[in-house]
């Protein structure tokens, strides 16, 4: 049974990745599961300088999902390279560094600095966090700007460059094309969907940022549809994500066009979720006599 996949030059032993922002810097979870079994770990989004994020309340549970407005709190690229990366190098898995900047120059510089560190195997560019201010959101919603910022990061790194797309757009296909034109080797589809919740007793928003990003099974059908649209629009590999809780959910994304999947909110519910999802994928392959997971990608029968 072949589970290995190639995500735009990033070779993984299996298609299960942990999603950025849901798995810390990886090491937090080493007591709960064998990190060597995961295809890749995507670490919490990194910026040039440490970021303190938003004030509390930062999360709120909604039906089959959760809203978050963490605000990209992180320890910064330097601290990550110095303190966390040496720990992660001990594991036989691939490390994807998720990163963001406030300007095109910052994106390029972050990409360059992460590329120079030993033990990072690919970069995932966050141009789509719903918790940033209006000007920043344009990177993920204006195709011309998307192409420009991706091109700048592309020039700054030799590593496989994955661009994480926002679902908060009119046409995910247009955004996908823009990212690929800019030089993306692969696409992560999707980031969280903008949402909000209000405490009706006090009339105050549940999140200090007022709006946040919705994740979890609630967004799965939307994410699946966007993976399907993206698959039809571009040739690069897609990492499908959005509410994947089980092996069956992961298979659904692969059939829709994903070459790999990322497990996000499920990690909060079960720290060993990614391992169980991998087992579920293998069970499905055995049951359907699929020898190579790559043959299932985009295998939807319409």
């Amino acid at each position: 049974m072949n589970l290995s996949v190639n995500i735009g030059g990033l070779k993984l032993k299996n298609p299960v990745i942990t999603a950025s922002g849901t798995f810390g810097y990886g090491v937090e979870y080493e007591e709960f599961l064998d990190l060597n079994q995961i295809g890749a770990i995507t670490v919490k989004g990194l910026s040039q300088h440490p970021a303190k994020g938003n004030l509390p309340g930062r999360i709120w549970e909604t039906p089959c999902g959760m809203l978050n407005a963490i605000g990209l709190q992180n320890i910064g690229i330097d601290a990550f390279i110095k303190e966390k990366l040496p720990e992660l190098r001990k594991y036989d898995t691939k490390i994807i560094a998720n990163f963001f900047g406030d300007t095109i120059e910052e994106y390029a510089e972050a990409a360059a600095r992460l590329s120079a560190a030993e033990g990072i195997h690919a970069l995932e560019m966050n141009i789509s966090c719903p918790n940033k201010q209006a000007g920043w959101i344009a990177f993920g919603t204006d195709p011309a700007l998307t192409e420009k910022v991706v091109a700048a990061a592309r020039k700054a790194t030799e590593l496989p460059l994955i661009v994480k797309l926002s679902p908060n757009v009119t046409s995910i296909a247009d955004m996908a094309k823009a990212a690929v034109d800019g030089g993306a080797d692969a696409l992560s589809v999707i980031n969280t969907i903008t949402g909000m919740a209000i405490d009706i007793e006090t009339r105050r928003p549940r999140l200090s940022n007022i709006v946040g990003g919705l994740s979890g099974p609630a967004i799965r059908p939307i994410a699946l549809q966007m993976v399907f649209q993206t698959f039809k629009a571009v040739k690069v590999p897609i990492i499908g994500m959005g509410g994947i809780m089980t092996g069956g959910d992961a298979i659904e994304f692969i059939i829709a066009g994903a070459s790999a999947v990322a497990v996000g909110t499920a990690n909060f519910v079960n720290p060993a979720a990614s391992i169980e999802i991998l087992k579920g994928i293998k069970d499905y392959m055995a049951r359907h006599q699929i020898d190579d997971i790559n043959t299932l990608t985009g295998g939807i029968i319409c």
């Binding site: 849901t22 004030l55 509390p56 963490i70």
Partner: peptide
């Protein structure tokens, strides 16, 4: 506080 992961990764239960 509201909490998602309980182990310090979601960063949701911040307090000032």
């Amino acid at each position: 506080t509201p909490m998602a992961c309980g182990v310090g990764t979601c960063l949701g239960c911040a307090v000032e």
